[in-house]
Design a binder for these strands. Structure first.
Lengths: 228, 228
DNA sequence: CTTTTGTATTCTGTATGCAGCATTTTTTTG
DNA sequence: CAAAAAAATGCTGCATACAGAATACAAAAG
């Protein structure tokens, strides 16, 4: 658990001259990661005393971070019994993907209209890097770049609310996708879809991009279906 | 400020035998209402000491509630300077409405497919009541029933994630709509659109309902455009 | 008169302490 | 020996206390 050291380094100021992130933000990120990466599996009670000690923080800021995550939907507050990591059913996941699909289709259309060439180029760069990771068989980095690309497209829409909602859903789903290890052939298919996506985006082909994004998420459901 | 009494009544147990809501939930609701109803205008700093005293609560649970609202997007956290009520630009509002539109179109389609007859009947009941309030010129109750109807349709979709995202956006927009007092002719048009909505829902006409909901929100933007 | 610097105050951020509820273990009773 | 009651433990929820940062104010210098 290197959470402790990294947390304390930030509190002391560390190498950087100015403390960038407040403790609250740091705590939220750490807890999020712990949930997503499975350190805190669904159903786990978030023990304030224990967890606080582990992170080197007192209960007060920890509780505040937990409340934040509760509003984000990663954690559930049970009166008088603290917080537990939320458990998502198969239907929950499918529902989230349905909404995400709708949002990405919208984002795709808007991005084609309003994105700057520079913005599109950045996504292309992410994509190329992702393909390299794919070819190298680096699952973790592939996964992260994949997420980044979808996030980037949501942001290219220029619609902050859209990017926001997209981020919330994506965060909730991260844990699921993090687990879902599809086989080589499905993985290849996913990469191919991404290839189409980028091409459509660069051509600013609204209909095409929207369609590919939608299809990509329909397939995504098929890919994770068994894992949940 | 009757927040004090109502909060304290709950803490003592009040008339009900069991304390239903935890203090956290109560606080969140109260702060939400205060923001929506304009007691705390955009840009206002949430003064913990003062606000806590006003509500009869110590700073700790208040801070937790504020963090919750921050994650909800109603409030912005400024490091070392506390929380500020978020200010939405005209573009922000338009963006939120765009997303809301997309979500409602989806909700409409799903509702037509999966809603129970009983569920639809409930929405009809809300609608009829709303029309009565409209005829009586009761703006506040009309407004609240209007919101309830849209919320209900989102829930009829049977998609929890969708209902969730919808609720978040609706909450963020409540304040804007609460202000926007459209004239009589626009009001009448809005009611007519609602009439169409209910009819389409009862007929389970996906395409029609989706179309009306979308149009309704396009018009909604035209209605509030000047207020922001 | 403006600007700057030092000081005082106010507010946030975090830690700690205490009361009450939930749960578990122990004791008592049938 | 089983079941119920009672005590004990552990944890959450809230309040208070303290340290540090930011701001406001005041005095002094240009």
């Amino acid at each position: 658990m290197n959470e402790i050291t990294s947390l304390e380094r930030r509190r002391e100021g560390g190498p950087g001259p100015i403390r960038r992130t407040a403790l609250h933000d740091t705590l939220v990120s750490h807890l999020r990661d712990m949930i997503i990466e499975g350190d805190l599996p669904p159903g786990t009670r978030l023990h304030e005393g224990q967890l606080g000690e582990q992170l080197g923080v007192s209960r007060t800021p920890l509780r505040e971070a937990i409340k934040y995550l509760a509003s984000e939907g990663l954690v559930e507050l049970v009166p008088s019994r603290g917080a537990v990591v939320k458990r998502f059913s198969a239907k929950d996941v499918q529902d989230m993907l349905t909404v995400l699909q709708s949002l990405e289709e919208l984002a795709g259309r808007l991005a084609c209209e309003t994105a700057s060439d520079a913005g599109i180029a950045e996504v292309r760069a992410l994509h190329d890097e992702m393909v390299r990771r794919y070819q190298a068989g680096d699952r973790l980095q592939y996964y992260k770049l994949n997420q980044q690309i979808h996030t980037a497209i949501a942001q290219l829409s220029g619609n902050a609310a859209l990017a926001d909602m997209h981020a919330v859903l994506q965060t909730r789903l991260k844990r699921i996708r993090f687990i879902g290890h599809e086989g080589p052939e499905k993985w290849a298919a996913a990469v191919a879809e991404h290839e189409e996506m980028i091409a459509a985006l660069e051509a600013r082909d609204k209909a095409k991009l929207s369609e590919v994004l939608g299809r990509h998420l329909t397939k995504a459901w098929e890919r994770v279906r068994d894992s949940v």
